[in-house]
Write a protein that binds this DNA or RNA. Structure first.
Lengths: 114, 114
DNA sequence: CGGGATCCACAAGGATACTG
DNA sequence: CAGTATCCTTGTGGATCCCG
């Protein structure tokens, strides 16, 4: 088994990852951003069933504050706001991809007990 | 940019990943398990500052229920319990590793504004 | 040693109403 | 359209006590 980190370096990194990605909605929002077709506030509302306006706005702003997501406001009426990943946010893609691959492998390791 | 998933397949996978890894402690526990030196309940208590007994036991049991962690009880007095990763749990290693690498790259993308 | 049970405080989150 | 403000319910997590 691979040793995943050196104790001296990664303690704070782990905490940072947890803080940044914590919550029921962050990953969902990010996955839609990676999908590339979703940039508008109302798109998220449609594609993430069950999320409230409050949570959506709040989590988007947290992601923005953490430097994962960039928010671009077009000064027009009606308002238009686009969300996109920052460079650092895009760098997260392989990790989230690995996470999804892992989830897909579940049945390989734990065959549905029949 | 890479397309990270096909909309048809991954919606439930995303939700599963979120459910399994959600919380302030799960990743911390897992990282210590990957480190390989921690298998005992009391080890986690020492190495994860601030975690309460309740949370530690609860999260360990959730990880166990989700098939990530295996719990082995030695029938002796005083009791001895060892935690280890299941095969599926070990398969999570690359993904968590990628997550850590990503965190480490932060300064590369967002140099500390001086 | 490795927890379970209980109580409690606070924070997270949902519903609704309103706005530039 | 893209939110904010408010209220209120629920969940999360800590502290404490207890047990095999």
């Amino acid at each position: 088994m691979r040793k995943i980190y050196t104790p001296s370096s990664a303690a704070s990194d782990v905490l940072e990852v947890i803080q940044i990605l914590e919550g029921r909605w962050k990953l969902l929002i990010l996955f839609h951003l990676f999908d590339g077709k979703v940039q508008r506030y109302s798109d998220f509302e449609k594609l993430i069933p069950g999320i409230s306006q409050k949570m959506l706005a709040q989590q988007l702003r947290k992601l923005e504050a953490d430097g994962i997501v960039a928010r671009k406001v077009y000064p027009q009426v009606p308002p238009k706001v686009e969300y996109r990943l920052t460079d650092w946010g895009q760098a997260l893609c392989p990790a989230l991809d690995a996470l999804l691959s892992w989830a897909e492998q579940k049945d390989h390791f734990a065959p549905p007990a029949s």
